[in-house]
Design a protein around this nucleic acid. Structure first.
Lengths: 151, 151
DNA sequence: TATAAACTATTAATAAGATAACAAAAGAAA
DNA sequence: TTTCTTTTGTTATCTTATTAATAGTTTATA
């Protein structure tokens, strides 16, 4: 049976996850208004700001998602013309993915509004809060790694 | 184009979401070891600790998930015998959902280990950290509501 | 009472993540 | 060179989430 401390610990985590899920849902709604999903927009941004050409595997590593899932995301981005898939000449296993002009235009249209929304979200946090949050999150990250090692 | 403050704000949110997603994935793996998904276990726990009989809509409100999703989750829980679906006599639109003995047994087997894992996760946080985190999360919640109202 | 409005659950699309199995290609080792 | 291993991407299956449409019921209103 759980102790009071157990319940308090659990509540901290639940609250964290709950707020994050609310943020994720808000982001989903926001991007849906521009005809893309959050996952798709993420990929577009990664592609836009990358110095070198990226393969599907590269995108998978960036987004911490399996290659099989990247296939589908690129499929849909390609179908809506936001992205282009080109077979590599050097390595015939590989596809190089690039954003199209349409994709760049979309990002330019979305970006400002996105940062405005983020600003509204963190409105109630001052510099100290943000620092404190970052530190606590780092500690949780360490806790996660510790828990995983002991599994 | 985003300012430095924009980027910092964004990083705070990204970090928050990133840590939460890592926690969610760890939970998914943990519960998968017992043959249920996190969503399914959530429903079981809600049912176990509820004073009154719950309908599918009730569960949807509790889990903040649409009714269409609850249908599928209950389908699968019913198929594995962890839950029972019974049509209401009073209101023939409604299904009453109850945990079976098998469901209760599962919770009892999982619960202790679950709280142990949460403990490992928050190991690096002292009382002050937990309080600080709760407060920051509450502020973010307020920011969310504010952003939604202005949309 | 008859009609309209609201509610409950289901189904069907679409998108995404996880995992497993697979073919093709490339690289390493015998 | 031939064999073994690894890598890349695709396909398939499962679970979950979202939204929209729909069938049955119930409640409210005219």
């Amino acid at each position: 049976m759980p102790t009071d401390t157990d319940q308090l610990n659990n509540n901290s985590i639940r609250k964290l996850v709950h707020v994050s899920e609310a943020i994720i849902k808000a982001a989903d709604r926001f991007f849906a208004g521009f005809g893309v999903t959050t996952a798709q927009y993420d990929v577009l941004v990664i592609l836009k700001y990358s110095k070198n050409r990226l393969t599907q595997s590269d995108l998978g590593i960036n987004r911490v998602v399996s290659r099989s899932n990247i296939t589908g995301i690129i499929d849909r981005l390609e179908k809506t013309g936001l992205v282009k898939r080109e077979g590599s000449a050097d390595d015939r296993r590989v596809n190089h993915i690039t954003v199209t002009k349409k994709g760049i235009d979309l990002i330019n249209k979305v970006e400002d509004k996105y940062f405005e929304n983020v600003k509204k979200l963190v409105w109630f946090l001052d510099e100290k809060d943000k620092k404190g949050l970052a530190e606590i999150l780092d500690r949780l990250d360490r806790g996660l790694k510790r828990a995983e090692d002991e599994l």
